[in-house]
Design a protein around this nucleic acid. Sequence first.
DNA 1: CTTGACCCTCACGCTGCGTGAGGCCCGAGA
DNA 2: TCTCGGGCCTCACGCAGCGTGAGGGTCAAG
Lengths: 268, 268
Amino acid sequence: MPDLTDDDGLTVGQVSTRLGVTVRALHHWDEVGLARPSLRTAAGYRLYTVADVERLYRVVVYRELGLGLDRIRAILDDADTDVPDALRAQRTQVAERINRLQQLSAGLDRMIDAHERGLLLTAEQQASIFGSHWNPDWPARARQRYGDTTQWRQYAERSASRSPEEWQAIADAVAGLERVLGDAMDSGVIPGSPEANQLVERHREMFSSSYFPLTRQMQVCLGRMYESDPAFAAHYDGIRAGLATWLRRSIDASARAHSIDPDAATWQ
Amino acid sequence: MPDLTDDDGLTVGQVSTRLGVTVRALHHWDEVGLARPSLRTAAGYRLYTVADVERLYRVVVYRELGLGLDRIRAILDDADTDVPDALRAQRTQVAERINRLQQLSAGLDRMIDAHERGLLLTAEQQASIFGSHWNPDWPARARQRYGDTTQWRQYAERSASRSPEEWQAIADAVAGLERVLGDAMDSGVIPGSPEANQLVERHREMFSSSYFPLTRQMQVCLGRMYESDPAFAAHYDGIRAGLATWLRRSIDASARAHSIDPDAATWQ
DNA sequence: CTTGACCCTCACGCTGCGTGAGGCCCGAGA
DNA sequence: TCTCGGGCCTCACGCAGCGTGAGGGTCAAG
């Protein structure tokens, strides 16, 4: 009948409270051979001697510095392990992880802004990229209306990773397409004709790759808005008088060619 | 015989190169239901449609921001999950991890210094704590001689966590014990007597708790050094003439009482 | 003799895949 | 037509460091 109160050694529970580690951790370190008790009672109880506790204490110290168990083992067991070197290596790793996390944090900031503001550009940048017709309030208003849709989310995710230059490229491409649309209307391209349908498809693809995936049904709704919304109508009619209507009619016709009833089309 | 080259969908390999993720990751996301292909060929090949790839792309974006798969699933599937909130929560977590890592890094710095310098105190602090006899070079010289021993390592680990106040307490305790030793010698306590043995034990305990665990054999070596090293001898003899020798003889006698031959004692 | 607090040994779970093992499928050349 | 090489499939273990029971002995006190 061994006496657990004398100083033959401490049980796991006693060590655990003294060192502030869990019993399970002591079991684990015993299992992997990192720090084992040199004694066991007849019943199998672990008994940690003073020297064992000393070793455990060192394990705790290095674990609090974030070292892995293998590295700790090397420090404790290999007399030729250079401790400062090992610690410096650890410090380097920690610095790298800090760096990574700081980049993550910056990325999160950008994404949060993208979701809340919609455009990560200053008012000046917006004006210089989208032209003087652009109203800096539009992204905020769009967010008010569409902020809880999947499309807005996809739009926000994409914009978070876009630089001003990329926005410029998009704006240029949009302006180019609008010119092409205006020229087509001028040269008598009829809504429903193969040429018009092709242009409608080009519009859908560019919109999809610039903002968010656009289905044909959604495109129909968009075309109606181009015509009915004063701001949009003014924009398109500013390119060519009647372009908003021509575009709406072209989209409608293309939808019909794809077996969609434009008058029944719904967003989403 | 399905044609894998048309746009019914992309195989895992094609998606993997396009999105820059491993095939295994695609398998995993399929397994856990985060992003599954909507088609399979007759042979069981996964076929990702354009919509599937869109979803995968979103997964990649949020994974690069460090979000867990469950949180990503919530963002993608639950229309009522507030994305900015989820991102802010993530940012908070990241900030906490950065904090923890920065504390780790500071702790590593302290430990590296402890191993390399031995004492993390300025020369002024050392002088005010250990008195004017103290030579600031001693820690560096001790490191030169003992830097690759387990004892130095334990000493360094302990000093890394000691504040100037704690060093002051240790210095006071040491000075107190030295006074007690001097008084004992003055009052005629004989090396080998029970009183002397008790004092030797007290010395060993205080040393062990202040610097590193000291065995009786090591204590013998220490006693010899106290007597033979000019600096140590001067220190002890400065307290009481002959104290270095008295202490060495007391330690020797106590060792003999514990069946140790002091003339054969070895460090370590 | 019983009770409650400790102790033991399995053994699965967690996070997000990496890394084979063993085997079927597909397109192209001999 | 046979074969070959590359791609795809489904298991299933591994990892890092324990957390968390499950099921069952042990110890000291009443």
